[in-house]
């Protein structure tokens, strides 16, 4: 069993196996609302491949990153709801 990497989502510490995409890791951590739509609806990943832009989160302060394209990294700071 490889060692898990730790990252935070909205300040909450989560763990995932290295190599997991951030989107997959967040889903496993129970996060379903990755962003808020223009009218305030909660949205989460749909296409899983960087096309739909529904899984956008802020990663280490950089807005509008696609969580499905980012492998989870130790110490990553994620903010949802943008």
């Amino acid at each position: 069993m490889p060692e898990l990497v730790e990252f935070t989502v909205d300040g909450v510490t989560c763990r995932a196996a290295p190599g997991t995409s951030l989107a997959a890791a967040m889903l496993d951590a129970g996060v379903t609302a990755f962003r808020r739509s223009r009218t305030g609806e909660p949205r989460g990943p749909v296409c899983g491949m960087g096309i739909c832009f529904e899984c956008r989160v802020a990663i280490d302060g950089i807005a509008h990153r696609r969580a499905c394209l980012e492998p989870v990294r130790a110490g990553m700071t994620v903010r949802t709801g943008e």
Binding site: S21, D28, C47, G48
Partner: peptide, 28 residues
Amino acid sequence: ERLLPFPGWTLPNVFGVGGLQALLKAGA
């Protein structure tokens, strides 16, 4: 993937077919 709108298609936990497959392969 071609995604078609229906009431509720934008809810969290509603994925594309290839989409859920991709997330599964990515570790979900």
